[in-house]
């Protein structure tokens, strides 16, 4: 069933400024000057973002098999074991924000930091929008959709990125590339697997993660969505 890869363009999801500030390491409300700077950054960067996703859907077992034996028994297996279907997707908000970050890194570091935070919030919002669409679509067929997980989560190694890229060819489809260190450019991008149907498990949220000293622990997204 993994016969086609689809491309989806999204409209901009609503912006969550508190989440942006949290990513920027600001744990209080923004004071006036920070708020002004954030507005300036948003004005400059929102118009250059694009919201693109490419994905493939198939039987959960088949998808797991395309990863090969070395990933057996990892989080991949645990999350997919109860699922009937699964999707693999790659999402990016495009290179425009990387260009702005590069522009300001040397000459305006605070702006660069805020742009980084905006990018993080935007790509997560795009992934949320995509997963929500999946939920709606599969709900009509009576299937539940589980939480997405990525290479690098828990014991699911980052090397799996190569398999995901071979499967989806996001280079051609949405302009997403993987470098020798398994990092993606545009940097504000995500690849992930989504279990569908059966008893597709919800994520354990922050509790599932091994990084116990994380500053973000217990944040908005850590509540176990």
């Amino acid at each position: 069933m993994l016969d086609g890869v689809f491309i989806e363009n999204y409209a901009a999801p609503p912006v969550d400024e508190r989440e942006i500030l949290r990513y920027a390491g600001n744990k209080a409300d923004a004071d006036e000057s920070l708020k002004k700077l954030l507005d300036e950054c948003l004005r400059e960067c929102l118009p250059v973002l694009s919201y693109r996703v490419c994905y493939a859907v198939g039987k959960a077992r088949e998808l797991e098999e395309t990863f090969g034996g070395e990933y057996k028994g990892t989080l991949l297996t645990r999350r997919l074991c109860g699922a009937e279907y699964a999707a693999a997707f790659a999402a990016t908000v495009g290179l425009g924000i990387d260009r702005l970050i590069l522009r300001y890194t040397e000459v305006a570091p605070t702006k660069a930091l805020l742009l980084q935070a905006i990018g993080a919030e935007r790509i997560e919002a795009l992934c949320d929008a995509f997963c929500k669409d999946m939920q709606t679509e599969w709900a009509t067929k009576g299937f539940k959709v589980g939480a997405r997980f990525s290479a690098g989560y828990g014991d699911f190694p980052l090397t799996a990125q190569r398999k995901i890229f071979a499967l989806l060819s996001p280079e051609r489809r949405i302009g997403l590339t993987l470098n020798g260190s398994l990092l993606m450019t545009p940097t504000k991008s995500v690849t992930a697997i989504v279990p569908i149907g059966g008893n597709a498990t919800l994520s354990g949220g922050c509790a599932e993660c091994e990084l116990k000293e994380c500053e973000m622990r217990g944040g908005v997204r850590g509540q176990g969505t």
Binding site: N26, L34, L37, P109
Partner: peptide
Amino acid sequence: EKRAYLPRLLMSAE
């Protein structure tokens, strides 16, 4: 002392 956060630290550095 966590009375100021990273954005402020950078803004004053600039």
